[in-house]
Simulated scan of single mutants.
Amino acid sequence: MAKIVFALIAMGLASPVQAHDIYSHLLDSWGNSCCSDKDCRPAPYRVTPTGVQMLVDGEWVDVPGYTIQYRALLGDAGQTGGGHWCGRAYQRVDNSVFHVTQCAVLPPSTAELPGPPDRGDP
């Protein structure tokens, strides 16, 4: 009985780590890891006249241009058309949430889309 319980626990713990492996090699523009095993996820995206936005926690988040990587991720299940977001959510005193993007991944084909005017992103 103990072996069965242990096996079920091990399977449950292994799944998120294995799913997160598609992000483990990603580095931001400064050479830092994009994630810490919990803050990267598939995310729908849209290109607007002012830039790229990604749907994170039910909110469209503006994505700084310097965080975007145009690449395909091995193991991508395709549910968001190749969009992935890495970052953190912070709660403000008024209980609203703001998101800080560490890295964003868009499919290579979107690199050719017209971008917003240069806003001086680092």
Rank of each mutant, 00 (worst) to 15 (best):
P114R: 06
A43Y: 03
S36R: 12
E112M: 09
E59P: 01
E112Y: 12
H99D: 08
R88C: 07
P44M: 13
P117L: 12
R119T: 03
T48K: 05
R88H: 14
G87Y: 02
H84L: 02
D39G: 00
G83P: 04
G58A: 09
Q91H: 09
R46A: 05
P64K: 04
A14W: 05
T50W: 14
P16D: 07
G81W: 06
H20V: 00
I9D: 03
G115R: 08
A104Q: 03
T110Y: 07
I68V: 15
M11S: 10
L27N: 11
D57W: 09
I22S: 01
V63Y: 10
Q91C: 05
V47G: 02
R119L: 08
I9V: 15
T110R: 09
S29I: 05
G51S: 07
V63K: 04
V5L: 15
G58M: 05
I22P: 00
Q91N: 11
A89I: 07
D57A: 10
Q53H: 10
T67R: 08
Q102D: 12
T101M: 04
R119Y: 03
A77W: 11
P117H: 08
A43V: 00
D62R: 08
Y90R: 08
V52W: 07
P116A: 15
T110I: 10
I4G: 01
V56K: 07
P64D: 03
V105P: 03
Y70M: 05
G31R: 03
T50E: 14
M1Q: 14
H84P: 00
T50C: 10
G81I: 04
V5G: 07
W30V: 06
A104P: 01
Y70E: 13
S24Q: 14
V47N: 12
N95V: 07
S109H: 14
Q79I: 08
A89Y: 08
H99C: 04
V93F: 15
A104T: 01
S36H: 13
Q18L: 15
V52E: 10
D57T: 06
L73M: 09
V47D: 15
V100Q: 13
L8E: 13
H84I: 04
D37H: 14
L26T: 00
K38P: 03
M11G: 05
Q69W: 10
Y90E: 11
G78T: 03
V93P: 00
F98A: 08
R92L: 14
D94A: 03
Y90L: 06
E112C: 01
P64N: 04
L13Y: 04
W85Q: 02
V100W: 11
P116V: 08
P116G: 07
V105M: 06
V56N: 11
Q91F: 12
L13N: 00
D94K: 01
V105Y: 05
